[in-house]
Amino acid sequence: MDKHNLTGLNEFILLGITDRPELQAPLFGLFLIIYMISVVGNLGIIILTKMESKLQTPMYFFLRHLAITDLGYSTAVGPKMLANFVVDENTISCSFCATQLVFVNMFIISEFFILSAMSYDRYVAICNPLCYTVIMSQRTCLVLVAIPYLYSTFVSLLVTIKIFNLSFCGHSVIRHFYCDILPLVSLLCSDTQEIKLVILILSVFDLISSLLIVLVSYLVIIASILRLNSAEGRHKAFSTCGCHLTVVVVFYGSLIFMYLQPKSSQSFDTDKVASIFYTLVIPMLNPLIYSLRNKNVKYALHRALEQLCNTFSRHSL
């Protein structure tokens, strides 16, 4: 294949989710609903945890930032994916592709470590409750979210700049519905050993380090809960971790399935399904999990809806 420099490449063609015309309209409707639920749910979590006095604790501070990251990477992917269902040719400019790659990876990497911070918060709350307010101070919470944002921004920019400084082959067709790292690397004609090594090291570090924090935190939490004499106390302690643990299993499970599956079974179709799940479905599920299973969030939501109804009633009179 002929090589072209980046200066000669103005846009990429996205193959999208499917090339079957009869599926375009139903899938557009389905993903529009999923994306709208995700936006409303995550914005709702952000507003509730900011405005409701009962939700002004470290746990809900981290939940707010989890909602921000969910909203961030779903919005980096969702609108463009939906637009591609209604256009004749799914093209994306080179600059927009690079921008999308930066934001998707920045928010996903941030979510890794925000989930880790949430598990550490639950560890302190259950295993060291008397010192909880001292350990999980406002300053500590700010540091625990600032570091992931700064680190993820640096990593995303580093990988994106390295990829787009290399030469792409003549074919500019991305076999995906958005600009992801692996489909872009497969289009490179330059020596990709270095960039593949960088991606591998960073991916393994992000996954293993964040997952290790979660696992260690929950092993200590479980050991502490099992030492409790009261069955009611054990149930209450487990219930405080239930929502977060569900989110962790779903998020890490989908990523592990996507990136650690055997080479022989890998396909772009499998990657698409996994990508749909973690870029669109998970951001929709997370606010639903917390709003349906968390009493404080349900109470805050009920109060907000009551106030909204009362406001409309007063204006209609």
Rank of each mutant, 00 (worst) to 15 (best):
A117G: 11
Y35E: 05
L130K: 14
G41D: 12
I289M: 08
I33C: 01
F205V: 12
F113Y: 11
I225K: 01
S264F: 00
I213K: 00
M258E: 13
L9W: 11
S275I: 02
R175G: 09
M284I: 05
L226I: 12
S156Q: 04
L212G: 12
L14V: 06
C243G: 02
F28T: 03
I108A: 07
V281G: 01
Q24A: 00
P21D: 10
I282K: 03
L115N: 10
L101E: 13
L48H: 00
Q193E: 12
N90Q: 15
L157W: 15
V250I: 12
L308K: 02
L188W: 14
F31Q: 00
L188E: 14
N5C: 01
C309D: 10
T240C: 13
A146M: 04
A25H: 10
T246K: 05
L27M: 06
T99S: 03
V39A: 08
A76S: 07
L130R: 14
F85C: 07
K50Q: 08
S291E: 06
Y35G: 04
L292H: 09
I108N: 05
A223V: 04
C97A: 07
L182K: 10
S152R: 06
L288Q: 08
L211T: 06
I195L: 06
I34Q: 07
F31C: 01
L32S: 01
F61Q: 00
T192K: 14
M118Q: 05
S224H: 14
L66A: 05
I161P: 00
P148K: 06
L142Y: 02
Q24M: 00
S291C: 12
L115H: 13
E11A: 03
I181G: 08
G72D: 01
L211V: 11
K236N: 13
M1E: 13
A231L: 15
E22G: 04
G16W: 14
Q193R: 14
Y252P: 04
V134Y: 15
